[in-house]
Deep mutational scan, measured.
Amino acid sequence: CHSECLGNCSQPDDPTKCVACRNFYLDGRCVETCPPPYYHFQDWRCVNFSFCQDLHHKCKNSRRQGCHQYVIHNNKCIPECPSGYTMNSSNLLCTPCLGPCPKVCHLLEGEKTIDSVTSAQELRGCTVINGSLIINIRGGNNLAAELEANLGLIEEISGYLKIRRSYALVSLSFFRKLRLIRGETLEIGNYSFYALDNQNLRQLWDWSKHNLTITQGKLFFHYNPKLCLSEIHKMEEVSGTKGRQERNDIALKTNGDQASCENELLKFSYIRTSFDKILLRWEPYWPPDFRDLLGFMLFYKEAPYQNVTEFDGQDACGSNSWTVVDIDPPLRSNDPKSQNHPGWLMRGLKPWTQYAIFVKTLVTFSDERRTYGAKSDIIYVQTDATNPSVPLDPISVSNSSSQIILKWKPPSDPNGNITHYLVFWERQAEDSELFELDYCLKGLKLPSRTWSPPFESEDSQKHNQSEYEDSAGECCSCPKTDSQILKELEESSFRKTFEDYLHNVVFVPRKT
């Protein structure tokens, strides 16, 4: 048989008469490798580009789960590009990614509803959504962080984005990388972005840091009482949809009607710091009717980097990364020049730590249904340095008659930039024990000054392991946590139920 035959053949030295091919099969003959313009397919066939392209389009058009959109890589027609490569849609070739590779997620039936953290986790790592997304989240724990972890990498949506009755959302900033909504599939009414009845939605994105392009379709905003109209108009300008909307697409009466839409800028007039305090004062603000001013709200939190936005980490279910302080308005003076500047002394802060701070007014709604208010920009203030805590785990070892090696770990709280350490030492008198000992005694162990690591005695271990207080009263049991108490109650309830079950099964009433 021919060298490319495997198993047997019907005619000697003829690659077209093989029972099976050793390498690849091409047009009725066995070959060692697939010549151009053919590609290896499933490690035994040679196919042309049209064959591989037909497989790709067949799966793409069917949208069946589990099928493969075949691509070409290293002269092979394979189910998908290997790690580190992405497909070129024009020629199906796998090309190296520039940075992290995109991950295209194809949605069944063309859309997916995100109504819980669990459903959001199914899209973790996706960068391109081939379909439409509907966000409908009523509640949950730590929602802002969970949504950002699972949806934060999405850069492109081919269909539309719909935010509907998501009472738990305060902001859409968890879509931190969303840059493009194509609108290839539109919501009824030709809408590519749809926001309806979101009672706590206050911000779409921080438009000073976020760009969003909507290729096709219109915007729809109705019944978002805490979303200011200025935020919607800003989205029109940034996304390129200005002029597409009709009169009733953006409701003037049901958007922002319960919001404090600040239209003035508060400026800080005085800032002073110490290692654990920050004193702030800002310019006074009074609405047209000074009785509408209820006070100020001061927001602050630790910020290692200057990239904080107002609604980071917030949701309507209680999660809030900001510390909020309510401040009463100052006494009002008739003389504008003698107006008191409101302020606040922030206490209990960490030394040498940068804080993000902003302040906003708290006002009631005027009778004319106009909203007044003022808010400052987010500023960054760093507390002063102070003395560091003591170095940890000092170790001293003498390696000769004239040297001592000293080692330690950095302090747990540096409280500033540590530039150097101060080492103090003092000579001590020799131990009298060394002169009084009889060095001729056998088995004498000389006193040693070398360091030995501390260890816990058996008594201390027994005390720590004991669940009861000892007789001397030195140790006591740790208080039980809520989960331990709940577990004990469940076990007790189970024992009672099981005992009742045994009584009912074992003891049967005697027939009379």
Score class of each variant (00 low, 15 high):
281 R>N: 01
259 A>V: 12
291 R>Y: 15
152 G>D: 01
280 L>Y: 00
269 S>I: 14
329 P>Q: 12
242 K>D: 14
161 L>T: 02
371 T>A: 08
166 S>N: 13
282 W>A: 01
120 A>P: 03
380 Y>V: 10
118 T>D: 11
179 R>G: 11
148 E>S: 07
394 P>Y: 04
215 T>F: 09
322 W>G: 03
270 Y>R: 00
296 F>N: 04
284 P>Q: 15
254 T>A: 07
347 R>W: 14
153 L>G: 08
146 E>Y: 15
296 F>D: 03
105 C>G: 01
308 V>K: 08
163 I>T: 03
368 E>P: 01
157 I>F: 02
351 P>G: 08
161 L>E: 00
190 N>A: 14
210 H>M: 05
155 E>Q: 04
273 T>H: 08
302 E>H: 11
294 L>S: 07
345 L>G: 05
211 N>F: 04
407 K>A: 00
376 S>D: 00
245 Q>G: 15
198 N>G: 02
268 F>C: 02
267 K>Y: 15
145 A>T: 07
201 L>S: 00
344 W>P: 00
374 A>G: 13
283 E>N: 13
217 G>M: 01
356 A>L: 01
154 I>T: 07
209 K>T: 14
261 C>N: 05
335 D>A: 12
369 R>D: 03
246 E>F: 10
331 L>G: 15
397 V>Q: 15
346 M>N: 01
146 E>D: 04
326 D>S: 06
381 V>H: 04
137 I>G: 11
186 L>Y: 09
106 H>D: 04
132 S>G: 09
331 L>A: 13
273 T>I: 07
269 S>D: 03
358 F>D: 01
119 S>D: 14
186 L>H: 15
243 G>Q: 13
321 S>E: 13
118 T>N: 14
339 Q>K: 12
131 G>H: 02
401 S>A: 14
355 Y>R: 00
168 A>I: 04
342 P>L: 10
274 S>F: 11
211 N>H: 11
391 P>L: 04
240 G>L: 15
275 F>N: 08
184 E>D: 15
373 G>S: 03
410 P>F: 10
225 P>E: 04
394 P>I: 08
158 S>H: 07
241 T>L: 14
341 H>C: 15
326 D>G: 07
406 L>N: 04
353 T>S: 11
133 L>C: 01
218 K>N: 02
353 T>P: 00
313 G>Y: 04
149 A>M: 07
297 M>P: 00
310 E>W: 06
295 G>N: 10
255 N>R: 05
199 Q>H: 04
108 L>I: 08
405 I>H: 10
333 S>Q: 14
133 L>R: 00
312 D>Y: 05
277 K>S: 06
303 A>I: 15
310 E>Y: 05
166 S>A: 06
359 V>F: 03
292 D>H: 15
333 S>D: 14
255 N>F: 11
174 F>M: 06
357 I>S: 01
242 K>A: 03
135 I>W: 11
277 K>M: 08
285 Y>L: 14
374 A>F: 03
252 L>A: 08
389 S>P: 02
220 F>M: 13
190 N>Y: 08
239 S>M: 15
141 N>F: 08
293 L>F: 08
292 D>V: 07
110 G>F: 13
114 I>H: 01
369 R>N: 13
153 L>R: 06
287 P>E: 08
355 Y>M: 02
338 S>E: 13
395 I>Q: 05
244 R>S: 04
266 L>H: 01
199 Q>R: 14
299 F>S: 03
338 S>I: 03
126 C>A: 01
305 Y>S: 07
277 K>Y: 12
281 R>M: 00
131 G>N: 03
397 V>A: 14
362 L>I: 07
363 V>D: 04
256 G>F: 07
315 D>Q: 15
114 I>K: 00
103 K>L: 08
162 K>L: 11
343 G>M: 05
162 K>E: 04
255 N>C: 14
104 V>R: 04
171 S>E: 05
303 A>Y: 15
284 P>M: 14
319 S>M: 15
181 I>F: 01
363 V>L: 11
139 G>R: 13
392 L>I: 07
319 S>A: 07
145 A>L: 13
256 G>E: 14
405 I>N: 10
201 L>K: 00
142 N>W: 04
180 L>G: 07
346 M>Q: 05
282 W>D: 00
201 L>W: 06
141 N>M: 12
385 A>K: 11
170 V>L: 07
388 P>V: 01
352 W>Y: 02
166 S>C: 11
119 S>L: 12
351 P>R: 06
238 V>C: 13
182 R>S: 07
128 V>S: 12
199 Q>G: 11
266 L>C: 03
370 R>A: 13
259 A>M: 06
345 L>I: 14
294 L>M: 12
225 P>H: 12
189 G>A: 12
135 I>C: 01
202 R>S: 12
227 L>I: 14
150 N>V: 03
189 G>R: 04
226 K>L: 06
380 Y>E: 01
314 Q>R: 15
388 P>H: 01
307 N>L: 09
217 G>D: 00
389 S>N: 07
117 V>C: 02
339 Q>E: 04
281 R>I: 00
133 L>Q: 00
194 Y>M: 05
323 T>K: 12
350 K>T: 05
387 N>I: 06
268 F>W: 08
233 H>F: 03
322 W>T: 03
383 T>N: 00
263 N>K: 09
194 Y>V: 07
376 S>T: 12
181 I>V: 09
334 N>V: 03
286 W>P: 03
188 I>W: 04
333 S>W: 01
229 L>Y: 11
177 K>R: 10
147 L>N: 02
126 C>R: 00
114 I>A: 02
344 W>Y: 02
305 Y>H: 14
214 I>A: 07
176 R>S: 13
130 N>T: 11
218 K>C: 06
331 L>P: 03
116 S>D: 14
387 N>H: 13
274 S>P: 00
138 R>L: 07
353 T>Y: 11
127 T>L: 07
211 N>A: 12
329 P>I: 07
227 L>Q: 02
359 V>L: 08
373 G>Y: 03
374 A>H: 07
262 E>A: 03
147 L>P: 01
165 R>T: 14
277 K>R: 02
372 Y>R: 15
271 I>D: 00
203 Q>L: 04
212 L>M: 03
213 T>M: 09
251 A>H: 03
254 T>R: 07
147 L>R: 01
121 Q>G: 01
227 L>C: 05
360 K>V: 13
125 G>T: 06
401 S>K: 09
200 N>Y: 04
188 I>A: 07
352 W>D: 14
363 V>S: 07
223 Y>V: 10
113 T>V: 11
328 D>H: 05
171 S>G: 13
211 N>C: 09
168 A>L: 00
311 F>G: 09
135 I>M: 06
317 C>S: 03
155 E>I: 15
338 S>P: 10
107 L>F: 09
269 S>T: 08
345 L>D: 14
388 P>Y: 01
217 G>R: 03
387 N>R: 08
261 C>W: 05
388 P>S: 02
297 M>A: 04
277 K>C: 15
310 E>T: 03
227 L>W: 00
133 L>D: 00
202 R>Q: 04
188 I>M: 02
115 D>K: 10
215 T>M: 08
394 P>H: 03
325 V>A: 14
189 G>K: 03
153 L>V: 12
134 I>H: 01
193 F>V: 10
328 D>S: 04
258 Q>M: 03
113 T>F: 02
